[in-house]
Simulated assay, not measured.
Amino acid sequence: MSPDEFQKEFGPEFPATPVDPHPYGIHPGHVKTGLTPRGKAALTIAGIALTATVAVGWQINASNTAESQAKAQELALKQQELRLKELQILGEQAAANQKTQTAQASAAQAKVDACVKANKTLVGKQLGATYRTVLEDCQAQYNATAGADMQAAASITDTPGASSGGGGVNPIVLAGGAGFAVLAVYGARKARRNPA
């Protein structure tokens, strides 16, 4: 059955009602998609503001980075200067300690020589007295005194927090002690070669 036949046959029973072609309102025609001119202007202004903010932030960050690097370099230079001053002071102390130790070693050697000269007359007169025993007795007597002086000097110069790490034995005192020991051995060998 065609629609016309249907209308003829059942038309009086079902009256035709007009159908609204625009049930949701009148269609305005062709609608443009995209932004309005105001929206485009607002988006442009927002983009410019964002770009300016990023540029200013980048410049501030770059200047802060440059300042922090300059400060770090300045601190490194100050640390180097302090380290150089510390090394200079340690060198001066080492030189002063070396002079003191040399003076003490020469004084101890002079005392040993004087002791040997004074007790040389005992060689051959006393039982078991030889030049070697006289020399060893004198060295033991005056080197013990020099050792006590060295310990006193070490206790004065070994300050906590110095280059030795805040405790233990000061390397300057060790070097001085080693130098003193070398001088004592040299003096003993020289005395053995020249017994008279």
Score class of each variant (00 low, 15 high):
S2L: 08
P3K: 06
E5Q: 14
E5L: 14
F6H: 11
Q7K: 08
E9N: 09
F10Q: 06
P12Q: 11
P12F: 11
P12A: 15
E13Y: 08
E13K: 09
E13R: 11
E13V: 11
P18N: 01
V19K: 12
D20G: 01
H22R: 03
H22N: 08
Y24G: 04
Y24V: 04
Y24F: 15
G25F: 15
G29V: 08
G29F: 11
V31P: 03
K32M: 13
T33A: 10
T33S: 11
L35N: 04
L35T: 01
L35E: 02
P37F: 13
R38Q: 09
R38G: 02
G39C: 06
G39D: 10
G39M: 09
K40T: 06
K40W: 11
K40L: 15
K40Y: 12
K40Q: 12
A41M: 10
A42G: 04
T44N: 07
T44I: 02
I45R: 14
I45S: 10
G47N: 08
I48G: 01
A49C: 15
L50A: 15
T51G: 15
A52Y: 00
T53A: 12
A72C: 09
Q73C: 02
Q73L: 13
A76S: 13
A76H: 12
A76P: 06
Q79I: 06
Q79K: 11
E81S: 12
L82V: 01
L82I: 01
R83M: 14
R83G: 07
K85P: 01
K85S: 12
L87V: 10
Q88R: 10
Q88M: 05
L90T: 10
L90Q: 14
G91C: 05
G91F: 04
A94Y: 13
A95M: 15
K99Y: 08
Q101D: 05
Q101K: 01
A107Y: 00
A108C: 14
Q109T: 08
A110L: 07
V112C: 03
V112I: 15
A114N: 05
C115V: 14
N119S: 09
T121K: 14
V123N: 02
K125A: 15
L127Y: 09
L127N: 06
G128I: 04
G128F: 14
T130E: 13
T130N: 13
T133R: 15
L135K: 09
D137Q: 05
D137N: 08
C138H: 04
Q139M: 13
Q141W: 00
Y142K: 00
N143M: 10
A144F: 06
A146W: 00
G147V: 08
G147Y: 10
G147Q: 11
D149T: 02
M150I: 05
Q151P: 00
A152D: 07
A152K: 09
S155N: 07
I156P: 00
I156D: 15
T159H: 07
G161I: 12
S163L: 14
S164M: 07
G167R: 06
G167D: 05
V173G: 00
L174W: 02
G176M: 03
A178F: 12
A178T: 14
A181T: 13
A181N: 07
A181Q: 12
V182L: 09
A184C: 02
A184G: 03
A184D: 10
V185E: 07
Y186A: 12
G187F: 01
G187I: 01
G187Y: 02
R189K: 07
R189C: 02
R189S: 05
K190V: 04
K190T: 07
P195Q: 11
